[in-house]
């Protein structure tokens, strides 16, 4: 569901000429509601390899000061690539997929 604020549509007289778009405006668009499963981060199993971050197609892994810091659930579509790519610690995954509660 898109942000209601941004979705207020302008008429042709007010709309910027042709289809110039503000860079990065998609950040305001929610794709988190596509998920049927959500990734859950288990910090104690995380070795901070950042493979989850580098493989996320949706820029939904939050990295702060070069450290994995959780997920942006507004954008995460729940594909589960992060969980598959996560090497974990001693055989224990730092990311697991759980069913999305609706």
């Amino acid at each position: 569901m898109a942000d209601i604020k941004i979705e207020k549509k302008k008429g042709w007289k007010d709309l910027p000429a042709c289809d110039y778009l503000e860079a990065g405006s998609a950040a305001a668009f929610e794709t988190g509601d596509w998920r049927s499963e959500r990734p859950v981060w288990i910090p104690e199993n995380c070795i901070q390899c950042l493979f989850c971050w580098v493989y996320c197609p949706d820029s939904a892994v939050v990295v702060k000061d070069s450290l994995m810091a959780g997920f942006n659930y507004k954008h995460c579509k729940g594909c589960g690539i992060c969980a598959v790519e996560c090497p974990g610690k001693k055989g224990k995954k730092a990311i697991v997929m759980e069913a999305e509660k609706k």
Binding site: G24, A26, A27, A28, F29, E30, T31, W34, R35, Q48, C49, L50, F51, W53, V54, P57, D58, S59, A60, V63, S66, N72, K74, H75, C76, K77, G78, C79, G80, I81
Partner: peptide, 22 residues
Amino acid sequence: LKELSKRPELLSGGHRLCSGCG
């Protein structure tokens, strides 16, 4: 990757590629 993660992200989330799109 730690160094790379300091750079600005030039493709934001909120796009509409399929979930898991390569």
